[in-house]
């Protein structure tokens, strides 16, 4: 590679990094600004302060943020787990079994993934309030499944296609019981796909806003994105920019950790084996 090419690549990489990370950095800087500093029109804080983080963890915004964080984590994790279990069964059937209706299931999943969420939030609200699911964890977990299931089914189905299922029979021929064959041969092959799907599903559940504001009204179930929209500052009418920025950074941390640790798997999962290795 020539020096010129190297330089070109360096510039390209730097541009990609800035484009991708700048807004995050921007709100990170906001989270370290004092109230007066936020109004100053500067990019960097003139003095770093932890006051905004104190506000959301121990201060006045605590009662709004901590329950929301708990809800977001609980609901997203449960919804992800459920989606992955249901989708694994479904995708296994699609990949391995020959049965009529397969196509219908895949098309339905596709259709559901295109569904305008706002269209169903009102009727769901009406049903939920009648059966007591309004403002509960379960009341969010169920609609989250409509967001996470379709992509999970498609991703897993593609993963399972690539598993050499014949190995299972080979292991059985070698004397393993069918359960042993499944556990020793198939599970290790399928696990990365399931795990990747879980991460993608978690991102989707973690991101939800419409169900979050439409189907909750208190800290009993309100997730973080919805809570952010209702944030208040240190006092009643103070601009909550600092507290919101700090809270936004906190909920971005899990995303960053997952991305750092599993970028290769996520890309592979999203491009579905098109990028091998």
């Amino acid at each position: 590679m020539t020096t010129k090419q190297k330089l070109g690549w360096a510039i390209a990489i730097v541009i990609v990094m800035i484009w991708s990370l700048f807004p995050v950095f921007s709100i990170l800087m906001n989270s370290f600004k004092s109230n007066a500093d936020l109004q100053s029109g500067g990019f960097l804080p003139s003095a770093f302060t932890w006051a905004n983080y104190e506000m959301i963890f121990t201060g006045s915004a605590r009662d709004l943020f901590l329950p929301a964080l708990r809800n977001s984590i609980g609901i997203s994790v449960i919804a992800t787990a459920l989606a992955v279990v249901l989708a694994t069964l479904c995708a296994y059937a699609i990949a391995r079994l020959d049965f009529r209706g397969k196509r219908i299931i895949l098309v339905t999943a596709l259709a559901v993934s295109m569904f305008p969420v706002v269209s169903i939030v009102t009727p769901l609200f009406n049903v939920w309030r009648q059966i007591g699911l309004y403002d509960t964890w379960l009341g969010l977990i169920l609609p989250y499944l409509s967001l996470t299931l379709p992509i999970s089914i498609w991703t897993l189905a593609a993963f399972f296609q690539q598993i050499p299922w014949d190995l299972e029979r080979a292991a059985q021929v070698d004397g393993a019981t069918s359960f042993q064959a499944f556990r020793k041969v198939i599970v290790p092959l399928a696990a990365p796909g399931v795990f990747t799907t879980a991460i993608i599903a978690f991102f989707i559940a973690w991101n939800d806003f419409v169900f979050g504001i439409g189907l909750t009204s208190t800290d009993a179930a309100r997730p973080v994105p919805a809570a952010l929209a209702f944030f208040t500052g240190a006092s009643m009418f103070e601009d909550p920019a600092g507290a919101i920025s700090a809270a936004a950074i906190v909920v971005t941390i899990p995303v960053i950790i997952l991305v750092l640790a599993f970028q290769r798997q996520i890309v592979a999962g999203l491009t579905q084996g098109a990028v091998k290795g």
Binding site: L69, R70, N71, I73, G74, V77, P254, I257, A261
Partner: peptide, 14 residues
């Protein structure tokens, strides 16, 4: 493992 631990802690706190 950090990621898993972090998520685990979150769940427990829930």
């Amino acid at each position: 493992s950090v990621a898993v631990a972090a998520i685990g802690a979150f769940v427990l706190a829930g």
